[in-house]
Write a protein that binds this DNA or RNA. Structure first.
Lengths: 191, 191
DNA sequence: AAATCTACTTGCCATAGGACAAGAAATAAA
DNA sequence: TTTATTTCTTGTCCTATGGCAAGTAGATTT
């Protein structure tokens, strides 16, 4: 399970602990368009993506859907607030492409989380990193122009540009699809 | 220690556990302008704010400082990525006003975090909420106009408007101080 | 009390990006 | 292969916000 090995990396985790963790996951295949989570539901698992890409989004007051994130290979599709607080989510998580993933339920997660110290530490580090990345994204929204945000995405997550349609990338960057189309044109010209 | 009681709320935490947690904190007074953390340092503690307000910020490429957050009474001033990964921070955390806080070191935190299940759970929930709030802020940056973002801040965190100078609020909202000044004027007119 | 400083306001003009509408072009459906 | 549907591009015009510079008002220092 190479994806799980990539995801669950922590110095305290022994091979046999990793084995135990892996076994708590169930393989699941998603078809393009399938939902992992829908607004109003209470999350009861999270998914490690082995292949393909999913998108999380919310609706704003005007009914526009706003992409809050893209989750690809070796990443985790999760709504931490719904899962850990056991409250209804405001988010949708949907497969952008056909996907292979490994899903782990909250119950099993909880048992391992409290039984395996390294897993517990790993979880906290994962959350720390998520917070950091989200903070960086917020700063980028404030300081970078739309074209710079696009270029960064291009450098840092080229797979997103290949797998996601323009309109979703646009809302993720905080601009309209029209503007993104013009930005692409501009970048092509620059070469 | 009313601030600590407000902060450390979790159904699993017993009174004696709370007592133990409280005792691990040291009271510290800050003068306006004092730094809790500076870029390049590795965080080795976090601070529960009892009184006053601190601001976290980073510098962008152009040398402008960008406010990443305001932390007030009953909230926690922490750089999770630096503290838990033990890596140098990119952030500054500075007292906006004179402050009273309770500080806990990473070493003591670690011991309690692994000894007290309720504390461990509390920590995860705290991080989940932080992630959720940051996500909401990002969505707001994308979908709301500057004036709407200001009004929301006004409703949800009125203390910030009272304790922080306009220029810091402006960068937090992702606008210039000039624009924020005009927004305030506009809002006064509306009444 | 004069002299600095910092915080905030205001005016003028520039510009990035939005709104809307009309194509293309590609994909899916019939 | 013809029709629909979705995706992306392009044009025109508009608006929110930025850049810069000057001005006012408090606060702090000398």
């Amino acid at each position: 399970m190479p994806a799980l090995q990539t995801i669950y990396q922590h110095p305290l985790l022994t091979l046999s602990e990793l084995e135990t963790i892996f076994e708590a996951h169930q393989p699941v295949n998603l078809n393009k368009g399938d939902y992992l989570l829908k607004k109003g539901q209470v999350a009861n698992s999270y998914s490690c993506i082995v292949q393909g890409m999913v998108r999380s989004y919310v609706y704003d007051f005007n009914g526009n859907d706003i992409t809050t994130g893209f989750i690809g290979k070796d990443e985790i599709a999760i709504d931490v607030i719904s899962l850990f607080h056991q409250i209804p989510t405001v988010e949708y998580i949907q497969a952008l492409t056909d996907c292979k993933c490994y899903v782990i339920g909250l119950d099993q997660f909880q048992v391992l989380y409290h039984a395996i110290k390294g897993f517990n530490e790993w979880g906290r580090l994962w959350m720390s990193e998520s917070l950091f990345q989200l903070k960086q994204r917020t700063v980028s929204m404030i300081t970078d122009s739309a074209i710079d945000r696009y270029k960064k995405l291009q450098e840092q997550h080229p797979q997103i540009l290949q797998q996601a349609p323009l309109k979703f990338i646009a809302t993720y960057l905080g601009i309209t699809d029209t503007s993104l189309s013009r930005i692409r044109k501009e970048i092509v010209k620059e070469r």
